[in-house]
């Protein structure tokens, strides 16, 4: 039991560690937080489902540097995400944009849930 608690504490302490290297970080903690927030929304292109804040891949590091550079230049969060999206497409975003060709990704699960609830939980007369 004690061992499990030890493992839990260790995991808890290290759960908030990122791949961001000290030389990449912005001096201003508020701006650094914005950069991390953007980084968590961007998928690393060569990793197995990792965001760029947690990836050690070369491209993830380059994107982290780019995000911080653009923040320092005064660019808005939305502009930065939109720039990366324009280069790498929907794959790079964890939240796919709602468009006519992606609408089913959003509608289908909810629709199916409603349908199943209707079929299985409707009151029998």
């Amino acid at each position: 039991m004690r061992f499990l608690a030890f493992i839990y504490i260790i995991l808890f302490i290290f759960s908030d560690l990122y791949a961001v290297e000290p030389d990449e970080m912005l001096d201003d903690p508020i701006l650094e937080n914005i950069a991390r927030d953007i980084g968590k929304k961007i998928r690393c292109l060569v990793c197995q489902n990792e965001d760029i804040e947690n990836s050690n891949a070369d491209i993830a590091k380059d994107l982290r540097v780019l995000i911080r550079k653009k923040i320092s230049e005064g660019k808005e969060k939305k502009e930065i995400i939109s720039y990366i999206h324009s280069r790498y497409g929907d794959f790079v975003l964890y939240t796919p944009p709602i468009r006519s060709d992606t609408i089913w990704l959003w509608v289908f699960p909810i629709g199916f849930l409603i349908l199943l609830s209707f079929i299985f939980f409707r009151k029998k007369r």
Partner: peptide
């Protein structure tokens, strides 16, 4: 030199 041009072109490898 720093990989930024590659990002401009959407290069990932």
């Amino acid at each position: 030199k720093n990989g930024m041009t590659s990002i401009d072109w959407g290069v990932y490898g």
